[in-house]
Computed example of a mutant assay.
Amino acid sequence: MKIIRKIPVKQIMTESSKRELHKVFDRQKQQLEQECQQLLFEQKKLQQKQGVSKEEVYKRFQGEITRRRDKMKWIDFQIEQLNILPIGSEMEEGEVEALVEVTEGSNWNELMSNKAIFVKDGIVIGIK
């Protein structure tokens, strides 16, 4: 019988991977900032329409803008953590699902032991 098991993928931090992550965070932050500007524009446009509650429009749009600004603060925190992360440290990047063969007599503890895939600069360097 085959079962599906989740296996963590861990990235070994290098100068190159730190730079790439920094670029990803910067792009995400820039995208959120553009969305905030677009929401403000749409808010002003809607508030000028007749028969629309300006207060209701303001509340709805400010909620969305606040959510994006909170995400930007979270990204700032992640950038701070990235900057203090030493080269060579492991960072969990996500997880993948793997098929595991289970037969009678299999060692369950070994099958379920904490295995991980290690990646360095986009190349798998180990499966332990």
Rank of each mutant, 00 (worst) to 15 (best):
V119Q: 00
V57S: 01
E95Q: 12
I123Y: 04
E97F: 06
D26E: 14
K71G: 13
N83T: 10
P86L: 01
F77R: 15
E93H: 09
R27F: 08
G88D: 02
V9C: 00
Q50I: 08
K23Y: 09
L21Q: 14
S106Y: 00
T14V: 01
D26N: 09
K54L: 07
E93D: 08
S113M: 07
S53F: 00
K59S: 14
G51I: 02
L40F: 09
E15D: 11
L46N: 10
E35C: 06
V102D: 03
V124E: 03
Q28F: 03
D70W: 07
K54R: 15
I79W: 03
V100I: 07
R27L: 12
Y58G: 13
V124Q: 03
V24Q: 13
G51A: 04
K29G: 06
V24N: 10
D121A: 06
K44C: 11
L99W: 09
R5K: 14
K29P: 01
R67H: 11
K23N: 13
Q50W: 07
E80T: 12
R69N: 12
G94E: 00
G126F: 02
D76Y: 02
Q50L: 09
V9L: 01
E110D: 10
V102P: 01
I4W: 08
E104Q: 08
G122K: 02
R19L: 01
Q78T: 08
N109M: 09
I117Q: 04
E95P: 07
V100P: 02
D26P: 02
V96N: 02
E55S: 14
L40M: 15
E93L: 10
K54Q: 14
Q38K: 15
Q37W: 06
N109L: 09
T66V: 12
E104H: 05
P8I: 01
G105D: 03
Q43R: 15
K128I: 10
K45R: 15
A98G: 05
K59I: 13
Q11F: 04
I12P: 00
G105P: 02
R60T: 15
I84C: 06
D121V: 06
D76Q: 10
E35H: 07
M72S: 11
F118R: 14
K71V: 11
V52S: 05
C36R: 10
I12R: 02
E56M: 13
R19W: 00
Q38V: 11
I4Q: 13
R19D: 01
I4M: 13
V96W: 03
E93R: 10
Q30S: 15
I87P: 00
E93G: 07
Q43A: 15
Q28G: 08
K18V: 02
